[in-house]
Every structure is written in structure tokens, then in C-alpha cells.
């Protein structure tokens, strides 16, 4: 079929929009390895800025990883059973719980952070530890894990699978770990990737919750933008990209159409992610 003029117009427009979004990203990454950004690339390339970022901010990178992994652990331990319980007893009460769970996504991160500080700020040890930030991250990411697992649970007839296992003599724990968990693996993986990605990139909450000794990567970014040379801030961004992009690609992978079930999961996860739009990256 010959392509019409319209097609090329649309293609051109799409490419233009892509460029509009991608060029700043590339510029920022280039700036991070340029000797002097005001002179331009002709000043030469260097890894000096990355080295500086490492010496200044490596702690924030490790802390972000620690928080992301802990956050994942907590959301797995809490979120998967919660999703299972919600799926098992659908009703008005469980809808209510689901709504409460999702609320932190809708409420501005700053408001949640403030509430946490007002309530627990007096507990000095807790307030100054990274665990305080972890609590905020768990509140914020838990609904994504629950939703993602719930989506898969509602797409399989898990009740009958469980009854089948029970008829063969399997008690609850056997059924849960040998039948339920393996069959909702795709939802757990998609949820895990979402949780880790959101936690690493979280800024709103963390900015309020952090103390000078508990800075995370995105908060460190803001700090470097405000107080360092542009090249250092850009190099820092580069480090952030290196961490977050593989996660985003993995997230995309799990959403690639591979059958009706996959597509459905993708759709559900997409819906769950939608309200978070701009918060994934600062």
C-alpha cells in the first residue's frame, strides 16, 4: 500500500516530539562528560566529573539501592499476601481497603511526608535513620505491588487451582507457595520492577524526609544542581540514568505483548502506573 502524505506528516510530527524529549536527555548526558560545557564539546571529553560525583555522592547511590531493595522486600512480604487476601474475598470491605492502599498515590508526597514528620518526628533515632525514608517509600510503592499482583490473580482462576491442590491433600502453605505464587510470578516481577524503579527515583517524599546524613540519589541530584557546577550535576544525572534505564527496559520487557494474558497484565500495570506519571524521575 503506498503511503500517503498524511503518513509522512504524522511520522514527522512524532519524530519531532521524540526529539523534543530526547535531545535534552542527550544534552545532559553529554554535558556530564564534557570538560567545559560553556565552551562545548570542542573542549574535550573527560570522566573527571563522574569521578567527582563518585567521591561526593557515592553514599547516596548506595543508600538509594539499600532503600529500594528494602522497600522491595517489604512490599513483597506485605503486598503479595494483601493482594491474595483482597482477591480471595471480594466485597465492599476489600474495595475500601484497596482504596485506602491507593490513597498515597493520589495524595501529594509532600503531604504524606509532613504527616509522617508530625507524627514520628519526635522519635530522634527513627527520624534520622534511613528507615524513616523507607516507611515513606513503602507507603508510596505498596499499591503498585498490590495492583500488579491483583491484576494477575484476577486473570487466572486461582480459586479452582487452589481447590485442585487442596483435593490432592495440600494444606494452605503448600498451596500458597507451590501453586499461587508460581502462577502469579509475572505480576510479582512486574510489581517488583515498578517498586524498585519508583523507589530509586522518588523525590517528593524523600526530599522532606531526608536529613543531611540520609540523602538519596534524587535528593543528591537536587543538591548538586543547586550547589555544584553544571557538569557535576549532569554527570550525576548520567549515573542516575545508568541505574534506572535497565530497570525501565526490564519493565517494558514484561509488558511486551506475548498473548492475551500478558497484554492484560500490561494494561493493568499501565493503569496502575498512570497516576504516578511525572514522579518516576525528578
Amino acid at each position: 500500500m503506498p503511503r500517503t502524505r498524511n503518513f509522512y506528516l504524522q511520522l514527522g510530527f512524532t519524530l519531532l516530539v521524540c526529539l523534543f524529549l530526547i535531545v535534552p536527555v542527550v544534552m545532559s548526558m553529554v554535558a556530564g562528560v564534557t570538560v567545559n560545557f560553556f565552551i562545548g564539546v570542542k573542549s574535550g571529553f573527560t570522566v573527571r566529573w563522574i569521578g567527582e560525583v563518585w567521591s561526593l555522592y557515592s553514599q547516596t547511590i548506595f543508600r538509594s539501592m539499600l532503600i529500594a531493595i528494602s522497600c522491595l522486600a517489604v512490599t513483597l512480604v506485605v503486598g503479595v499476601p494483601t493482594a491474595y487476601a483482597l482477591a480471595k474475598r471480594p466485597g465492599r470491605f476489600t474495595r475500601l481497603i484497596e482504596e485506602f492502599l491507593v490513597m498515597p498515590v493520589a495524595i501529594p508526597g509532600l503531604a504524606i511526608a509532613l504527616a509522617l514528620i508530625i507524627t514520628y518526628g519526635g522519635m530522634r533515632e527513627f527520624r534520622t535513620s534511613w528507615l524513616f525514608i523507607l516507611v515513606g517509600h513503602v507507603l508510596y510503592t505498596l499499591p503498585f505491588m498490590v495492583r500488579s499482583v491483583l491484576a494477575v490473580l484476577s486473570s487466572i482462576d486461582f480459586r479452582t487451582l487452589e481447590e485442585g491442590a487442596a483435593s490432592l491433600g495440600a494444606g494452605f502453605w503448600h498451596r500458597f507457595f507451590q501453586i499461587i505464587v508460581p502462577n502469579i510470578r509475572s505480576g510479582i516481577i512486574a510489581g517488583s520492577l515498578t517498586v524498585v524503579t519508583l523507589s530509586i527515583g522518588e523525590f517528593n517524599l524523600t526530599w522532606m524526609l531526608h536529613t543531611p546524613t540520609t540523602m538519596t540519589l534524587p535528593v543528591g541530584l537536587a543538591d548538586s544542581y543547586a550547589s555544584m557546577r553544571l557538569e557535576i550535576g549532569s554527570a550525576y544525572t548520567l549515573v542516575f540514568f545508568v541505574m534506572i534505564i535497565p530497570l525501565l527496559i526490564a519493565l517494558q520487557r514484561f509488558g511486551t505483548p506475548g498473548g492475551p494474558r500478558r497484554a492484560r497484565i500490561q494494561e493493568e500495570v499501565g493503569r496502575a502506573l498512570a497516576p504516578a506519571g511525572g514522579q518516576a524521575a525528578p
Partner: peptide, 20 residues
């Protein structure tokens, strides 16, 4: 006794085979 203690064999309309 719950089903897992009754030692019954059950065949379901949807078969309920474990996909994993």
C-alpha cells in the same frame, strides 16, 4: 475435616491443572 484431609480425588470442569 477440610478437603485436604478427606483424601478425595476431584476432577473439575475446568480441570484445574497447574499451569506452572
Amino acid at each position: 475435616l477440610p478437603i485436604e484431609k478427606r483424601n478425595v480425588g476431584m476432577v473439575f470442569q475446568s480441570y484445574a491443572l497447574f499451569p506452572n
